[in-house]
């Protein structure tokens, strides 16, 4: 018989320490997420750096809050949220001279570039995914094309931005007829003369395509082949079965991929900053320079101080909440629409 001999204590110690350590490392992720929200939120509410959270700091915010009424001596240096409130979101003036800030232009720019990019990238990406999952080309060639599209995702945003800048004149020439013929539409209302919102949307399309294509291709590949055979067996053509059976069966993944891409588009920084013109004037025209929240941050954060820094953090907070909501939606949609088929 075996005796109930315990394992040596060193071994148990190693085991326990190891398990605890992995738990600690895992919680670093959650801590980071919390830290990001907290930090950005803090900077949007207060001016000054994080160390003013420490009670013994000379500019400690606790001291200021304790002496709430005595604002002259111990005034807390309130940041953008107390200053501008929710009006920040609806105000289109961004004036560092008068220290008056509103983020409507970059919020509009963010939403508009992302929407335009998504509108173009979803059909293109899903179409490409269909092309890659159908038997138009031999399997090997399709795998190669799929790999190439994925490589596109690996090209750094800043390189795409540099390329877009080099290509700018060509694109402007392509935009000009739209203005000449459809100039009465507000969105084409200004003459394309330099970096603009339409350009930024196009470069976003290039960045979103690989995401949408890869995710859609994976979801289409996961549709059981029996479904296609079933559709073919009742006399469906290739495209009838694609539109009425395969895409509905893969819709959760496709929509999830599009949402993922949307989240990416909202926060995309470098290429957009280099090609959007970074103007904080609100314009209805897609051919006018504009800005997104991310481009505003990249462009202004370096030279900003005091309340402008806080206003930029406020804008960053808006961006974070936007992307957070989009990502949550994506996860919910994927779970909701997931096809129960085995």
């Amino acid at each position: 018989m075996f005796t109930h001999k315990k394992r040596p204590w060193t071994e148990r110690l190693v085991d326990h320490t190891f398990i605890r350590m992995t738990a600690v490392l895992a919680s670093v992720v959650s801590l980071t997420v919390f830290g990001i929200f907290f930090t950005v939120g803090f900077q949007a509410v207060f001016q000054g750096d994080l160390s003013s959270l420490l009670p013994w700091h000379p500019d400690s915010i606790w001291q200021g809050i304790a002496a709430w009424n005595d604002e002259e001596t111990f005034g807390v240096r309130w940041g953008a949220i107390p200053h501008f409130g929710l009006g920040f979101l609806a105000d289109s003036s961004w004036n560092p001279v008068r220290n008056d800030y509103g983020a409507l232009t970059p919020i509009y720019g963010t939403l508009m570039t992302s929407a335009l990019a998504l509108l173009l990238a979803v059909p293109l990406g899903v179409g490409t995914a269909i092309f890659l999952t159908e038997d138009f080309l031999p399997q090997k060639l399709r795998t190669t094309i799929g790999f190439m599209v994925e490589l596109l995702a690996a090209i750094p945003s800043v390189v795409l931005g540099l390329w877009a800048m080099a290509m700018l004149n060509g694109f402007l020439a392509a935009f000009t007829p739209l203005h000449t013929h459809l100039g009465w539409l507000p969105v084409f209302g200004t003459e394309p003369g330099g970096p603009n919102l339409a350009m930024a949307s196009l470069i976003l399309v290039v960045m979103l395509l690989p995401i949408i294509t890869a995710v859609s291709r994976d979801s289409l590949n996961q549709v059981p082949p029996e479904l296609r055979q079933g559709a073919y067996a009742v006399g469906a053509t290739r495209w009838t079965s694609i539109f009425q059976v395969l895409i509905p069966a893969a819709v959760s993944g496709i929509v999830g991929g599009a949402m993922l891409a949307l989240g990416r588009a909202l926060g995309e920084t470098m290429a957009v900053t280099m090609i959007i013109g970074n103007s904080t004037n609100l314009s209805a025209s897609w051919f006018s320079p504009s800005s997104t929240i991310a481009s505003l941050l990249a462009n202004q954060f370096g030279e900003a101080d005091d309340i402008q820094v806080s206003a930029l953090y406020y804008a960053a907070l808006v961006l974070m909440i936007l992307t957070f909501l989009v990502n949550i939606c994506a996860q919910v949609i994927v779970k909701r629409l997931a096809l129960k088929y085995d």
């Binding site: 900077q43 926060g267 920084t269 960053a316 990502n327």
Partner: peptide, 18 residues
């Protein structure tokens, strides 16, 4: 999942502040 969706520029702002 949330962290994967945080825009990269915000990572920069976070470390800047921290």
């Amino acid at each position: 999942n949330v962290l994967a969706g945080v825009p990269s520029i915000i990572c920069g702002l976070f470390i800047y502040a921290l």
